[in-house]
Design a protein around this nucleic acid. Structure first.
Lengths: 214, 214, 214, 214
DNA sequence: AATGAATGAGAGTTCATTCAT
DNA sequence: AATGAATGAACTCTCATTCAT
């Protein structure tokens, strides 16, 4: 028993090392530019060893995407689950999205950015994307149901929100946050940008109290 | 003279053919997945011939980016230059951005998508980014100067707009527009999304008349 | 004692399982196309375990050949030993040869087909070949000694018989029996072919009675 | 024109060198044991260069088989075409078969021996085999039509002849001719063996005159 | 006795690039 | 200007085999 458990643990440790190295390299250099040799070198193993843990280079990417997907979902659930105010849920969804993108930029990149996506765009990417959209869509619909927002197409609104946070995450993660003169607190700046985006949801509802954010 | 001009013209024609073929292939298959031989085959030339016109595969990409950059700037100038209403200028900037992304998806992809960007992130991409941001920033400032918008951080607002259109363009160009149930008119849907984004600029100004949109 | 015997028995059982699996795979897929891992998988053991029983992949082949060789010899002895009529002995030799090739196609393939033979042509193959030839040669000589056959070179005749059965066995085992239109009984067809070959031994002796060919 | 012709000639020369080297190696070492690198080394070229002339290693084998096939057919036609006596045609077919096997042992091996055959047994091998059989079958039928041979199954007879020459060729080419004590003239010995095989066709016709053989 | 882990060597194949012509 | 020929380096992946446990 003990023996078997140790083996499984070692195996898991090894998998992790491979996955972590691959994640870092895939993002930094692009999927196609990373060879199995380089992953192996990074963890000081032989290329062949990797194949004991993953059937192919492609599988490594798939597993990484899957992991990212699960973390993303968990984060979103935790964030938006407990709020009764739909607008607040929308805010939390956005924050969760951005937080994930910033805290796990590698996962985010692997999951949503186009280059790695090209490798099987119909698979994981589609699922991830659909999920993100649905999340925003629900919250928006809830807002509409409460009568706020005025006469607005919920699809358009949801997609607009998604575009906003997706674009923001992308610009941040590709280092383009620096174009702004202010060198101030990133956290706060991001929050202000998100808040500005949310204004469009409050166009007819400018008196609404903002919930305390974080 | 005549002779020389003809030679130069031929040379230019050839360059164009290479660039066009490469652009199409790079976007469709990904930079790394396109070989010089495939570009050569596409234009019915030998691989070696391409090297008479471009020093390397990488150079082709660079030139394409540069071209895209110039077109992008020209489009933006043309769009936003002539309107006196700052909000309308903002709208036109967004439309220009989106139109470029949609009319020249190849250039857009090459310029802004991260995978190809990595190859030379410090170069053109930085310049392009700065320009895009500045454009929004100026319009936003103009809006503020007219007293609309209320108490808003112009940097945050500009970056939010940029994020919105950038994210929207990205989602569209990577085929994720399809997550929406409506199969309706793309043009109109995009317009509605953009308009929704612009609402945040009119939060305190809901009576403003919308200018005629294109 | 008992214990030791059991150990030896287990060991033998294991060797058998490896040999049987290897034999089947070698023939079906070709020696080079069978990996130790596949053999191991087939018997649900680890690749490393095999090395407790055989020094190398090559050794497995060698042992298999050796086994085949012994079975072949035993079969031939049993067949041809007991008949007093030399022609009948010749017939039985041929039948034995063919029967072995058909009943143990795996061994036959491993022993005589050239591809695997190359791996060690100077060893077992030479011995097997000499034996086969000698057997025919003896029977032929006996026939000659009885005055039948007329004026014939015994070497040529023996080699001709060997060629006949060897070629027939080879064609059968490589699936080329199917070129014949008749879909009839294989057993009987083979017998008729062999009988036709034997006619050359009876050219001057057409009245000889055929022994019962079961 | 001249230029183009030279290019084509060079190309043909190169193809030949590759094919010849590959043929030799495939036979000596077995298809699976020959790497592209080894072929390349043998002709003092880079491995990549070979791919300018052949799409894959497999294609080289295919082309070689095809060539052998054409030579084989040509030889058979030339041999057996001009004789009016069916028995003589049978003799010439056998001689042609053996001559091909001995003069082009590499082609013969590639075409008919099992190891390389495994690589696509349903393709070339089947065709070659069918052809060989048909050839014998026709001649046998012609013999029967003249009333010789007595009451004999033509299929069995044809297959027996094929078996005889095929087996003989195989034994010779795998170096097993040496088991015979006589070190005498190979040519003559082979002829005698073939002649012995043909006796079975003359069982009921011992008065027939043998045509002058070669 | 048996295994999981590990590896050096090498497989077929492709690529960007160079160069003589 | 254009090309066919050629190559070194690199790719993903597999293999027979070894060894600590």
């Amino acid at each position: 028993m003990n023996r078997e458990r140790k083996l499984r643990q070692d195996r898991e440790t090894m998998r992790r090392r491979i996955l972590d190295a691959a994640k870092r390299l895939f993002v930094k250099e692009g999927f196609e530019n990373v060879s199995m040799r380089r992953i192996a070198t990074a963890i000081e193993y032989s290329p062949a060893a990797i194949y004991r843990y993953f059937r192919s280079k492609r599988e490594i990417l798939s597993v990484l995407r899957d992991e990212g997907f699960r973390r993303f979902v968990a984060g979103q659930r935790e964030r938006s689950g407990s709020h009764s105010d739909p607008l607040e849920r929308l805010r939390q969804s956005g924050r969760g999205y951005l937080e994930f993108a910033r805290r796990e930029p590698d996962y985010y990149h692997l999951m949503f950015s186009t280059d790695c996506a090209e490798v099987e765009l119909d698979g994981d990417l589609a699922v991830n994307s659909l999920l993100s959209y649905r999340l925003f869509r629900e919250s928006v619909q809830d807002c509409l149901d409460t009568g706020r927002f005025g006469d607005v197409d919920p699809e358009a609104a949801a997609f607009a929100f998604w575009s906003g946070v997706h674009g923001l995450a992308n610009l941040i993660n590709t280092g383009r946050f620096g174009v702004m003169a202010q060198a101030g607190n990133h956290e706060e700046l991001i929050d202000r940008i998100l808040e500005f985006t949310l204004r469009s949801a409050r166009a007819e509802d400018t008196t609404a109290e903002r919930g305390d954010a974080s």
